[in-house]
Protein backbone atom coordinates (compact mmCIF):
# COMPACT_ATOMS: atom_id res chain seq x y z
CA UNK A 1 0.00 0.00 0.00
CA UNK A 2 1.24 3.47 -0.83
CA UNK A 3 -0.17 6.93 -1.26
CA UNK A 4 1.54 9.91 -2.86
CA UNK A 5 0.07 13.34 -2.25
CA UNK A 6 1.05 16.72 -3.60
CA UNK A 7 0.18 19.45 -1.12
CA UNK A 8 -0.16 22.77 -2.89
CA UNK A 9 -0.78 26.36 -1.96
CA UNK A 10 0.79 29.78 -1.55
CA UNK A 11 3.59 30.48 0.93
CA UNK A 12 2.01 31.26 4.30
CA UNK A 13 -1.23 29.32 3.71
CA UNK A 14 -0.33 26.57 6.14
CA UNK A 15 0.42 23.55 3.98
CA UNK A 16 3.30 22.68 6.29
CA UNK A 17 0.81 22.27 9.13
CA UNK A 18 -1.17 19.82 6.99
CA UNK A 19 2.07 17.98 6.29
CA UNK A 20 2.93 17.97 9.99
CA UNK A 21 -0.37 16.30 10.86
CA UNK A 22 -0.03 13.68 8.13
CA UNK A 23 3.64 12.95 9.01
CA UNK A 24 2.86 12.36 12.64
CA UNK A 25 -0.22 10.29 11.96
CA UNK A 26 1.83 8.15 9.57
CA UNK A 27 4.58 7.66 12.17
CA UNK A 28 1.99 6.61 14.75
CA UNK A 29 0.61 4.03 12.33
CA UNK A 30 4.07 2.64 11.71
CA UNK A 31 4.14 3.69 8.06
CA UNK A 32 7.19 4.76 6.11
CA UNK A 33 7.04 8.30 4.77
CA UNK A 34 9.06 11.06 3.22
CA UNK A 35 7.87 14.61 2.83
CA UNK A 36 9.73 17.18 0.77
CA UNK A 37 8.93 20.81 1.42
CA UNK A 38 9.87 24.29 0.26
CA UNK A 39 11.68 26.75 2.52
CA UNK A 40 13.39 30.03 1.80
CA UNK A 41 12.61 32.57 -0.86
CA UNK A 42 9.53 30.90 -2.40
CA UNK A 43 7.77 31.01 0.97
CA UNK A 44 7.36 34.77 0.52
CA UNK A 45 3.93 34.65 -1.13
CA UNK A 46 5.07 32.38 -3.95
CA UNK A 47 3.64 29.08 -5.18
CA UNK A 48 4.74 26.30 -2.79
CA UNK A 49 4.24 22.60 -2.78
CA UNK A 50 5.12 19.65 -0.63
CA UNK A 51 5.53 16.09 -1.82
CA UNK A 52 4.08 13.72 0.74
CA UNK A 53 4.75 10.01 0.32
CA UNK A 54 3.21 7.35 2.54
CA UNK A 55 3.87 3.65 2.19
CA UNK A 56 3.86 0.35 3.99
CA UNK A 57 7.34 -0.23 2.46
CA UNK A 58 10.44 1.98 2.54
CA UNK A 59 10.17 5.08 0.35
CA UNK A 60 13.07 5.90 -2.00
CA UNK A 61 12.60 9.26 -3.69
CA UNK A 62 11.70 12.35 -1.68
CA UNK A 63 9.99 13.67 -4.80
CA UNK A 64 6.93 12.07 -6.37
CA UNK A 65 7.57 10.98 -9.96
CA UNK A 66 5.25 12.43 -12.61
CA UNK A 67 2.24 10.16 -12.86
CA UNK A 68 2.60 8.67 -9.36
CA UNK A 69 0.57 11.17 -7.33
CA UNK A 70 -2.66 9.69 -6.03
CA UNK A 71 -3.93 13.02 -4.80
CA UNK A 72 -3.45 16.73 -5.18
CA UNK A 73 -4.51 18.47 -1.99
CA UNK A 74 -4.56 22.20 -2.54
CA UNK A 75 -5.56 25.06 -0.26
CA UNK A 76 -5.94 27.29 -3.33
CA UNK A 77 -7.72 26.53 -6.63
CA UNK A 78 -5.17 27.96 -9.09
CA UNK A 79 -2.39 26.10 -7.29
CA UNK A 80 -4.35 22.84 -7.61
CA UNK A 81 -3.92 23.02 -11.37
CA UNK A 82 -0.19 23.65 -11.34
CA UNK A 83 0.70 20.02 -10.61
CA UNK A 84 -1.97 18.14 -12.59
CA UNK A 85 0.68 16.39 -14.67
CA UNK A 86 1.91 14.67 -11.51
CA UNK A 87 -1.43 12.97 -11.02
CA UNK A 88 -2.16 9.36 -11.95
CA UNK A 89 -4.76 9.01 -14.67
CA UNK A 90 -7.22 7.96 -11.94
CA UNK A 91 -6.07 10.42 -9.29
CA UNK A 92 -8.12 12.79 -7.18
CA UNK A 93 -7.95 16.55 -6.69
CA UNK A 94 -9.13 17.97 -3.39
CA UNK A 95 -9.06 21.74 -3.41
CA UNK A 96 -10.39 24.88 -1.84
CA UNK A 97 -12.50 27.13 -4.03
CA UNK A 98 -11.24 30.23 -2.24
CA UNK A 99 -8.76 32.08 -4.46
CA UNK A 100 -5.66 33.76 -3.05
CA UNK A 101 -5.18 36.74 -5.32
CA UNK A 102 -1.75 38.24 -4.78
CA UNK A 103 -0.88 38.48 -8.48
CA UNK A 104 -2.17 40.95 -11.07
CA UNK A 105 -3.08 38.33 -13.72
CA UNK A 106 -5.12 35.89 -11.63
CA UNK A 107 -7.25 33.88 -14.11
CA UNK A 108 -11.04 33.75 -14.07
CA UNK A 109 -12.10 31.64 -11.09
CA UNK A 110 -14.88 29.83 -12.96
CA UNK A 111 -12.42 28.69 -15.61
CA UNK A 112 -10.13 27.40 -12.90
CA UNK A 113 -12.87 25.46 -11.14
CA UNK A 114 -14.07 24.04 -14.47
CA UNK A 115 -10.58 22.79 -15.15
CA UNK A 116 -10.43 21.21 -11.70
CA UNK A 117 -13.74 19.43 -12.32
CA UNK A 118 -12.22 17.79 -15.39
CA UNK A 119 -9.92 15.75 -13.14
CA UNK A 120 -10.97 12.07 -12.86
CA UNK A 121 -12.24 12.84 -9.39
CA UNK A 122 -12.54 16.31 -7.89
CA UNK A 123 -13.62 17.52 -4.51
CA UNK A 124 -14.05 21.28 -4.19
CA UNK A 125 -14.81 22.81 -0.82
CA UNK A 126 -15.45 26.38 0.19
CA UNK A 127 -12.76 26.46 2.83
CA UNK A 128 -13.24 30.11 3.69
CA UNK A 129 -16.91 29.66 4.50
CA UNK A 130 -16.35 26.44 6.43
CA UNK A 131 -13.42 27.80 8.40
CA UNK A 132 -15.42 30.85 9.42
CA UNK A 133 -18.23 28.56 10.44
CA UNK A 134 -15.76 26.59 12.54
CA UNK A 135 -14.68 29.75 14.31
CA UNK A 136 -11.51 30.96 12.61
CA UNK A 137 -10.76 31.78 9.00
CA UNK A 138 -7.19 30.66 9.73
CA UNK A 139 -8.29 27.02 9.84
CA UNK A 140 -8.81 26.73 6.06
CA UNK A 141 -5.87 24.36 5.79
CA UNK A 142 -7.44 22.05 8.36
CA UNK A 143 -10.77 22.20 6.49
CA UNK A 144 -8.90 20.89 3.46
CA UNK A 145 -7.20 18.19 5.50
CA UNK A 146 -10.62 17.14 6.74
CA UNK A 147 -11.94 17.10 3.17
CA UNK A 148 -9.06 14.87 2.08
CA UNK A 149 -9.13 12.64 5.15
CA UNK A 150 -11.73 10.23 3.80
CA UNK A 151 -9.41 9.41 0.89
CA UNK A 152 -6.22 9.01 2.91
CA UNK A 153 -4.73 5.68 4.00
CA UNK A 154 -4.62 7.09 7.54
CA UNK A 155 -7.14 6.67 10.31
CA UNK A 156 -9.36 9.64 11.05
CA UNK A 157 -8.79 9.28 14.79
CA UNK A 158 -5.03 9.34 14.27
CA UNK A 159 -5.21 12.59 12.33
CA UNK A 160 -7.35 14.18 15.01
CA UNK A 161 -4.96 13.12 17.75
CA UNK A 162 -2.18 15.02 16.00
CA UNK A 163 -4.39 18.07 15.42
CA UNK A 164 -5.06 18.08 19.16
CA UNK A 165 -1.36 17.91 19.95
CA UNK A 166 -0.64 20.67 17.43
CA UNK A 167 -3.20 23.18 18.69
CA UNK A 168 -3.39 22.25 22.38
CA UNK A 169 -0.92 24.96 23.35
CA UNK A 170 -2.91 27.72 21.63
CA UNK A 171 -5.90 27.55 23.91
CA UNK A 172 -9.26 25.79 23.97
CA UNK A 173 -11.14 27.91 21.41
CA UNK A 174 -8.40 27.57 18.77
CA UNK A 175 -8.26 23.81 19.27
CA UNK A 176 -12.05 23.50 19.13
CA UNK A 177 -12.21 25.58 15.95
CA UNK A 178 -9.61 23.42 14.23
CA UNK A 179 -11.28 20.16 15.19
CA UNK A 180 -14.56 21.54 13.94
CA UNK A 181 -12.89 22.75 10.74
CA UNK A 182 -11.64 19.20 10.18
CA UNK A 183 -15.13 17.76 10.69
CA UNK A 184 -16.81 20.33 8.44
CA UNK A 185 -14.27 19.66 5.70
CA UNK A 186 -14.76 15.93 6.01
CA UNK A 187 -18.52 16.28 5.85
CA UNK A 188 -18.40 18.62 2.85
CA UNK A 189 -16.24 16.16 0.93
CA UNK A 190 -18.41 13.16 1.68
CA UNK A 191 -21.38 15.04 0.24
CA UNK A 192 -19.65 15.86 -3.03
Amino acid sequence: MKQDIILAGVGGQGILSIAYVIDNAALAEGLFFKQAEVHGMAQRGGAVQSHMRLSSRPVWSDLIPRGEADMILSVEPLEALRYLDYLRPDGIVVTSSTPYKNIPDYPDLDNILDAVRKAPKAVIVDSEKLAKEAGTVKAQNIVLLGAASGFLMLKEAGLKTVIEALFKGRGGPVLEANLKAFDLGRKAASGS
Binding site: V10, G11, M41, A42, Q43, R44, G45, G46, A47, P65, R66, G67, E68, L78, E79, L81, R82, L84, D85, Y86, L87, R88, P89, G91, N102, I103, D105, Y106, P107, N111, I112, A115, K118, A119, P120
Partner: peptide
Protein backbone atom coordinates in the same frame (compact mmCIF):
# COMPACT_ATOMS: atom_id res chain seq x y z
CA UNK B 1 9.18 5.10 -20.48
CA UNK B 2 7.52 7.95 -18.60
CA UNK B 3 4.68 6.82 -16.33
CA UNK B 4 1.18 7.51 -17.60
CA UNK B 5 0.05 10.79 -16.09
CA UNK B 6 -2.75 13.28 -16.41
CA UNK B 7 -2.24 16.09 -18.91
CA UNK B 8 -2.00 19.70 -17.77
CA UNK B 9 -5.35 21.47 -17.91
CA UNK B 10 -4.43 23.60 -20.92
CA UNK B 11 -5.57 26.68 -19.02
CA UNK B 12 -2.75 29.24 -19.02
CA UNK B 13 -1.65 29.36 -15.38
CA UNK B 14 -0.42 32.68 -14.12
CA UNK B 15 2.93 32.26 -12.41
CA UNK B 16 3.21 33.09 -8.75
CA UNK B 17 6.73 34.26 -8.03
CA UNK B 18 7.79 35.11 -4.47
CA UNK B 19 7.17 38.69 -3.42
CA UNK B 20 7.60 41.06 -0.50
CA UNK B 21 5.00 40.55 2.24
Amino acid sequence: EPLPALAKSGLPLAGRPPQLC
